[in-house]
């Protein structure tokens, strides 16, 4: 019996030492900056970490649909609203929660917008488990940083310096017309939302409400990724959990997407011309919520004007492009 206790004590001690070392290694391997060199994966989306504290009012979370459809600097230019698009290619909801947690450490957004394409993206239990553990022990996420780790990583404090000039929007002016024959054909079907995805959305909703943020579900225009059965499911789900749902795919007159001109890859994603139309509608919606105020005249937000200038200059655009319909 005595040896049983000794073995149990040994096992507990072993696990404790393991956790201490793992935490230490996590500290060393975690990026100390959010630059491309340090962060590697999705550094553009993580540009939000470089924004001054409590300056982002609208947090946009989603996949490539989102970073192709919403231009945060247009919202700034038109309404003085500060927003950031934490969107990454093929994003899963477990990953979205990481963006949410990381952003809320430095920001207090009043509105969180979740792109609904992700709600239909399947992921395995293993994915969810691994990435939940990564939140506790970042060594599991950044373990590959051993490849370019320096002494600085051991001693340097965390200082996020990278700012994305597009505030998460990824510019494209390519045009590849889409076929719209089957796009949003009426249907009474309901696409399946997996219990895991449902749970994640509810967790995000609960997190937002605990932090005083309004959650909005939004589907950006896409002929390839969206249809009526998905619309039906999200509409029902949004009603069930009591959140707003904006389906830009059904708002044809409010958002007059010209599928011959406004898409960069045959309807999968919007280009800048389509994105301006979608953003224009989102701006009106945000204004109607009366939750946000303009920071246009606040000198503390001058960097946003600079970002707008950089964005226009880098992409060879005129300010008037935001007025085009």
């Amino acid at each position: 019996m005595q040896s049983k206790y000794i073995h149990t004590a040994k096992a507990i001690l072993f696990i404790m030492i393991f956790l201490i070392i793992l935490s230490g290694i996590s500290q060393i391997l975690s990026p100390k900056d959010n630059t491309k060199n340090q962060w590697k994966h999705d550094y553009i989306a993580y540009g939000v970490l470089g924004e001054p504290e409590n300056t982002v009012d609208v947090l946009l979370l989603g996949d490539s649909e989102l970073y192709s459809s919403i231009v945060p600097l247009q919202l700034w230019e038109k309404y003085g609203y500060t927003s950031f698009s934490c969107s990454s290619k093929g994003q899963h909801l477990w990953y979205t929660t990481q963006f949410l947690l990381d952003t809320f450490k430095h920001q207090s957004p009043k509105i969180v917008i979740l792109e609904t394409d992700m709600i239909f993206r399947y992921f395995t239990m293993d994915n969810a488990l691994l990435h939940s553990t990564e939140i506790l022990f970042p060594a599991l996420k950044y373990h590959d940083r051993w490849k370019n780790i320096s002494f600085n990583d051991v001693i340097a404090p965390v200082d996020y310096t990278y700012l994305h000039s597009g505030k998460g929007y990824i510019y494209s002016d390519k045009i590849a017309p889409a076929k719209t024959g089957k796009y949003m054909k009426p249907s009474n079907n309901y696409a399946e939302i997996t219990p895991a995805n449902e749970t994640y959305v509810k967790m995000i909703q609960s997190f937002c409400s605990n932090h005083g943020a309004k959650l909005v579900l939004m589907s950006t225009p896409s002929t390839k990724n969206w249809n009526m059965s998905k619309h039906n499911s999200i509409e029902r789900f949004a009603e069930e959990i009591g959140v707003d749902f904006i389906d830009m795919n059904t708002l044809r007159s409010e958002i007059p997407i010209d599928w011959k001109h406004d898409t960069r890859d045959k309807g999968d994603h919007l280009n800048i011309f389509g994105a301006i139309k979608a953003t224009s509608y989102l701006g009106m919606y945000l204004e109607e919520t009366e939750l946000l105020s303009s920071h246009k005249d606040d000198p503390a937000y001058n960097s946003w004007n600079e970002a707008l200038d950089t964005f226009l200059r880098d992409n060879d655009l005129e300010l008037s492009i935001f007025d085009s319909r």
Binding site: I21, I25, H41, L130, E134, W146
Partner: peptide
Amino acid sequence: IFYIIIFGAYGFG
């Protein structure tokens, strides 16, 4: 254990 955690090919990428 830490050899596997650090040098293993899993997770992101």
